[in-house]
Design a protein around this nucleic acid. Structure first.
Lengths: 209, 209, 209, 209
DNA sequence: AATGAATGAGATTTCATTCAT
DNA sequence: TATGAATGAAATCTCATTCAT
């Protein structure tokens, strides 16, 4: 009767600290995976960059594939959130796309999906691939939905929304292109975004294949 | 290990016989590299798929990086030739682009340049990277040149030709996109090409960023 | 990871509660060790099967070797008790052996001593090995003693009692043999026991090498 | 026309040398596996004991499981041959068994089949297990056949031959038993063999369960 | 021209063990 | 009493590369 307030047994989850190590590993891993691709990142690389040992990585993640999956899905979910947040503002579609393009060009991450899936495929389980594909689909849908609504509101003409989405994403990547001398094509991120959206919008509104 | 090489009928030309093994290896290697990317293709894979031994591969190519470089540069040169051949015909630019798009969508190879450079970078020497970058640049220039000439001929308005080229190549890739159910977005290669060029052309001719 | 421990009804006796976890671990460990042998059982396996964490196992046992030793010695002691109980009954030796054989064939545990010592040896300290060897010897002696007494009583002719014991134990193991189709050699445990004892008894009583 | 005698291309298989390395590894591996059991022998152990590198072991055997299988099956086949050779002599069964027992007790290898299968099971493929089981069955059959023929010739009474075989093999193992002081039970191999066969023969000929 | 043998370095993964709480 | 976090050492396996023939 006197044990009113029992402390849970065991070492308390040092909540911040705890999630810190796991998150640190995830963060480091994501950077490396994005930079070099799945096969060229070793667990040792991740561990060293995170300042822990290999075994610690395996304490948190059961395999390299699992760590990869978790890192990628997390990133995609974050991107999806950002996309949804921008696209749900009460502004003309063109303005929202411009904002989004602008935001994307400044971010470090790239949406080169198959880019790093290349090389990982063989190592991932069906289930892991599914998890990634699902996160990928959510990203796409966030954009696709914006086009569908804009069509409903007659803001743009009817067009295959999947096509529009893929085109838009492809153009986004162009923004990061560097020429032979490694210099960007336009002088500022703003200008690049404007050119891309201008090009995209023209293609979108004048449709008669 | 299984040497299923069928010898062509007739007396073999000695020097072609000679180059035959080398070419066979190059061809096999290219396929594998395109399919899986540099790090996931082992010399053993290439040797086995070619029906020779690892040591034979090393007889012809001094390293994996060298073999990779040679294979990629060769492919790019072939593509460059094809591009130039199509683009140098005496037809309106839009028609030539349509033909080229059509041809590209039917070909097996993809121009996902960075795609497989990803993962190879660390292993290639500066010189090898340069050779590839040069071949890549030649490919781009073939397209870029067409835009420049079209601008000179006032067929299209003035625009950053590098930008136009990258946009065009990005749109090309969209043609190969498959949705969740792994089906293409349009019912035929022809229709896909038409949509892409239509979109591209609209963006191209109405330019006021 | 899944803590499916159901608490028994009623107020738990504190000191039994105490020994409960320890015993649970010992019991689980024994099963696993018998099943897979020392090297193929990990502390994690034991912990998980017991519904506790690795650290808890280490709270009760200072090392894997110690846990192994304790589990094995316990089992042997239990077997020794059972043997002594059967062999000390007031019946002809042959009858007692038959009963014991019968009991052994129905029990799950096996007396394949070296069987699991194999693989453990390197990891055990001298002292731990001694403890096990001692328990093993006690088991043997229980049987050996029965032979010695039977010889004293002229129930069987003079014979090296150690030899007789080992022969008997070897024959016991034959009872568990399964043929190619995984079926036993005789239709019932009773029949198997009878065959074994018959064979053994014949060898025992007609001795003139 | 002048190439009457063409030497095969490539480095010739240095026939003895070649098979020497492979055989050396097999031989070393067998010793270690018999001594410590599958899980406690590392490829490094085998490589070092063979005076080659780990990679060389993998050059000849695709996996630890494969090496194990090959080594065990080889040994069993050798034993089978020896058994058949002894048992097919034109002598009374008892004499032949005595010879065989004698030979077995002097040999280093033991027929503790399940002994090392224990611990290997999880790592072997179905196919590999089958190969071993088959070799094991061949060994048993060689003995079983001798009993069947002896029964046909009325040399011994009718008895379940599988039972007889397993009993015999079990008794063989007893011959290797060492007591607490690590000394054998009898003073010489000959005497041990005589005791075992005497015991076995008595059990065999007086059968009425 | 082509090969079989051999290797060193490094990849992923497992596991007994420690320690602060 | 029981635990979550972390680790060092070792195990299995891969692969680009060399070399004598």
């Amino acid at each position: 009767m006197n044990k009113e307030q029992r402390r849970p047994p065991g070492r308390p989850k040092v909540n911040e600290q705890n999630s810190s190590t796991r998150d640190l590993i995830l963060k480091t891993a994501l950077e490396l995976f994005l930079d070099r691709g799945f096969p060229l990142v070793s667990i040792d690389n991740i561990a060293q960059s995170s300042g822990v040992t290999k075994a610690t990585v395996y304490y948190y993640f059961s395999s390299k594939a699992e760590l990869f999956t978790e890192a990628i899905v997390r990133m995609m979910d974050r991107i999806t959130n950002r996309i949804q947040s921008i696209l749900s503002e009460d502004l003309p579609l063109k303005t929202r796309l411009l904002k989004m393009t602008h935001a994307h060009l400044k971010a470090t991450y790239r949406i080169d999906l198959d880019h790093f899936m290349q090389g990982a495929g063989d190592s991932l389980s069906e289930q892991q691939i599914d998890r990634i594909r699902l996160a990928e689909a959510r990203m796409y849908e966030a954009v696709e939905q914006a086009f569908i609504e804009a069509m409903d509101r007659k803001e743009i003409p009817k067009i295959n929304p999947e096509f529009a989405t893929q085109i838009y994403l492809a153009l986004l990547k162009v923004g990061n292109h560097r020429g032979k001398d490694h210099r960007p094509m336009f002088s500022s991120v703003e200008e690049t975004a404007r050119h891309i959206i201008c090009f995209f919008w023209n293609g979108l509104v004048n449709t008669e294949p």
